[in-house]
Design a protein around this nucleic acid. Structure first.
Lengths: 247, 247
DNA sequence: ACGTGCCCATTGTGATCACATTAATCGCGC
DNA sequence: GCGCGATTAATGTGATCACAATGGGCACGT
């Protein structure tokens, strides 16, 4: 699947001897070719897979393996992986092997702290730019979350939980803060998935309704508290499932 | 010139028909070849240059240019630059040109906010691991800062100011938080240099003495306040110099 | 003299090859 | 049969080439 190939930069077709005949083919414009570079597409795909738990912690990520999967040369893979390493979504161990970094109690605590420091602020800053239309949109996402939870659809739950939070944060137009928060989400994404995979989504409760209500009332303090509570509850759930039960 | 090549990875010696006489020489060890990979060395060199204002905002950073400067092929440069872009130390604009990102009032405010949220906490967490010996070391760095300020040595001032803060933060052993803070420092480094270049270091006052005193007394609240005040004062200075005066 | 169009230099991107190192596999000896 | 060493496979790294696109420089035309 996804045998898609790159959109440009055909290298010569065959070529045992050094030189390569032109043999340009280009074209194709395969699919999803959103005009961006190949390594950008690779990056987004990989990023989403990590963010939503598609790459279990500890599993190896090889350049040539991904290259074959995505039908491109190892080159754009290298750039995408390097970028994800810089964002701490991946980690290169001393072996030079690339893996999803393991979670420790210390790291987890720092993640929780960072989230509680940054995300409520982001929500409050976004509040002024969130009107009735945006609130409706956000509430719709929350509805989707409820459906996913009821059906036990972990993937849909995670994706929409992400959409819920970032639909709010994004309105703050604070890209510097957003970059920090996105990096943090990338770091706990795989373990959120692991937690839901172990325990399921049925016992989940979030504070999204309280956040929506605070948005409607324009209550900054309540919004801040709702986001903080949501983070606390969600991260506590992950902590229990991942750090307490086995490893 | 600089026909120099890397230290390993022989390229296939002869290559019959086509290209390029080998001309390898190894050379130089220009960059403190610490046994790590080439792109890691390139990364560190470039990172320091950015962090300490060696690359003025707006100036172009070209792959081949840097490659020639450092005597390596464009390849490790690409990885280092890609990493610095991910850390927001560099930015690739739509032209595909790589530059030190410009500073805006909004970005600046977010940087100040992030620093005030994260760095005092880092200092407090480090306090338990900072004994008399470490305090002596930190105080010595502060002495060096005073000397640099008196002599108007901007480079020495910036490097030792960095060393002062991170000598403290490092003891917290919080690498997740540290990564966030380092990314932030990379973003305002070039403008700190710009500010000092414009106004000089003579009018500077910091709160380092208060921080050292708080460390000696084990006074968490005072340490938090001293770090926050130092950030406030320093960033206000940069803000005045960079955002108010011209652009 | 100024604007306009073309040409070439430069830049980032992608592919492929060569190499060093590490992991895995198999075979040999006990 | 079971460990242990050598050989083989696989992986990340660096270099080089080819290509598309942008930008700047120069000549030409009005």
């Amino acid at each position: 699947m996804t045998s898609t190939t790159s959109q440009r930069h055909r290298t010569g077709g065959s070529k045992p001897p050094p030189r390569s005949p032109p043999a340009r083919k280009k074209t194709s414009t395969s699919l999803a070719d959103t005009g961006v570079t190949t390594h950008e597409n690779v990056y987004r795909g990989l990023r989403n897979r990590i963010l939503f738990g598609g790459v279990p912690p500890g599993s190896a990520v090889t350049l040539r393996g991904l290259a074959e999967d995505m039908g491109v040369s190892p080159m754009p893979i290298r750039e995408a992986v390097r970028r994800l390493i810089a964002e701490r979504a991946l980690k290169m161990q001393d072996n030079r092997r690339v893996v999803v970094p393991p979670m420790t109690q210390d790291t987890f605590e720092q993640i929780v702290f960072s989230r509680k420091m940054l995300e409520p602020e982001l929500a409050v800053r976004a509040m002024d730019r969130i009107g009735p239309a945006e609130i409706r949109e956000i509430a719709a996402i929350d509805k989707t979350i409820d459906r996913a939870m009821a059906m036990g659809d972990v993937d849909a739950y995670m994706q929409n939980n992400f959409r819920f939070h970032f639909a709010i944060y994004q309105r703050a137009h604070c890209d510097t803060l957003m970059a920090l928060v996105e990096s943090i989400w990338l770091q706990f994404g795989p373990f959120m998935r692991m937690a839901y995979g172990r325990i399921g989504t049925s016992t989940l409760e979030d504070h999204h309704q309280a956040a929506i209500a605070a948005l409607e009332r324009g209550d900054r303090k309540a919004l801040r508290a709702a986001i903080a509570a949501d983070i606390g509850q969600g991260m506590n759930f992950i902590g229990e499932a991942v750090l307490k039960l086995s490893t």
